[in-house]
Design a protein around this nucleic acid. Structure first.
Lengths: 266, 266
DNA sequence: TTTTAAGTTCCATTATTTGGAACTCGGTTT
DNA sequence: AAACCGAGTTCCAAATAATGGAACTTAAAA
């Protein structure tokens, strides 16, 4: 499990993940039976998290849920650490040009985290759309990012992949994935050939910093009924251009120098 | 400071706040001089947070920023713990009926956290944005929520208010605020009379659970050029109805029973 | 080359976390 | 009524992890 091994803080964050993972308010006892922490320990961790605002406790029902402090913190994360802010105009343009759904993703642990999205039609809801996670080993953006990870990071991350076979096309194991990654590295882009969802294909390009570090990935997604791989491939130069522009700008978007906070408040 | 006193976890989360608070990628030394933690301690906490994905470290520039794991967690928080999911249709309707900006907020620590928002047809630039925090003592939603807090919680929260005077109308101190809160409690709704931003007024209503616990608040906001308090007040019955409906539904929206996770992944 | 600042590691001391067990509190059964 | 039960909460001595002063390593500046 991810959150074990960094002492108390790691354990606490593990509990936080657990609470968030339930997808609904959860009882102490439910957490307890799913956890290997002893009762008292789990209890105290939850107390700490609660009065830190990282989880919310509903005394009327006796249930825990992820706390609002997370939303505040994530706002900061989204606004600055993610590429979202920088990438926004490029996503807009790319989705207009391509007429298809565009994703911006980054790695979070071993998983793909969708940071922003342009739906062909409807507009974005910040925390309902972005913030979602998906598997890395069977999505276009996931593979594009894995392909450009340093060898030792990659090995670590591959350990976390489940290789669940969503579709017949899903890559079945680490060996197959490594082969595909080599190919992606060579071409500078990769496909999702209905590996995650039947009928859904995409082409993805990594966003690489000047020194070759992988910052994220861009993809254009379509359905097999409406398009095909060859057609998506034709978009690669545009996507690459966008990726490079984003990387470039992210590089220069250092320190806006004034800490922004126009308004006093705390 | 908020995050001191819950042992190591509290300290770690304090550091996290600090990193997020900078609003830009930040150097170790910057954090160090602003913190009262010793160098080694701060260093280790950052390491822990980093390999937990709560902060991201950019080795190329040697800076820390809030991590993507927060976005993932916040997604969960927003989707379940907040009232946002339940309230969405009511916000939609309210904003359509009122033709003005509508806010949904909850308390986060001593501050107002804007959880969702509907812009007026003709949006006015203002401070709020979902995910953002604002002061509690001088906003409509803030005061509505404070008014319905248990006495001891209120006392604790009032300690955290800065009473910075944003405008001439800002309530200057705890006494004035307490008086106003009593009034809000009596009427069941309250105003923001340009107390936070000049020209911006609003009427706000608390969202109260069956047992009277305050879950959040709703507000309708306008500008002095376009509307006035009396006109906003006329909306109170509708807002109250929405608030009550939301509270009701939040109550019944227990356990969707199937943990949702349609897709295997972890 | 020397100096200085930033970041990183070490390790004995110290303080915190740990977790088994005992306790409390509603509610249910005998 | 008394006994029982399960969920949640508290206790405290033992075990463990956090602490922080100081020394070390780079990398850049003088």
């Amino acid at each position: 499990m991810s959150g074990s091994g960094d002492g108390t803080v790691g354990k606490a964050l593990g509990v936080l993940d657990q609470v968030a993972g339930f997808g609904r308010p959860v009882r102490f006892s439910e957490l307890l039976e799913q956890s290997d922490l002893p009762k008292a320990t789990l209890y105290r961790l939850l107390q700490t998290l609660t009065n830190q605002g990282m989880v919310a406790y509903d005394p009327e029902r006796g249930v825990y849920s992820p706390g609002m402090r997370l939303v505040r913190l994530a706002h900061a994360a989204w606004a600055q650490s993610s590429l979202a802010e920088v990438a926004r105009p490029y996503l807009d343009r790319l989705s207009r040009e391509a007429g298809e759904t565009v994703h911006l993703a980054q790695l979070d642990g071993g998983h793909v985290l969708y940071v922003d999205k342009r739906n062909a039609a409807d507009p974005v809801e910040m925390y309902s759309q972005s913030g979602k996670v998906g598997p890395a080993y069977c999505t276009g953006v996931g593979k594009a990012m894995l392909a450009h990870l340093p060898a030792d990071d990659l090995t670590r991350v591959l350990k976390q992949q489940s290789f669940h076979r969503f579709t017949p096309a899903t890559l079945p194991d680490e060996a197959a994935l490594r082969a595909e990654l080599a190919e992606i590295r060579e071409h500078g882009y990769g496909f999702d050939r209905e590996e995650h969802e039947p009928g859904i294909i995409c082409v993805a390009v990594p966003i690489l910093s000047g020194r070759g570090r992988c910052l994220g990935a861009l993809s254009v997604t379509g359905t097999t009924t409406r398009t095909n791989l060859a057609e998506l491939e034709r978009l690669v130069p545009r996507i690459k251009a966008a990726a490079q522009a984003i990387a470039e700008e992210a590089q220069h978007w250092r320190f806006p120098d004034r800490p922004v906070e126009a308004e006093e408040e705390r």
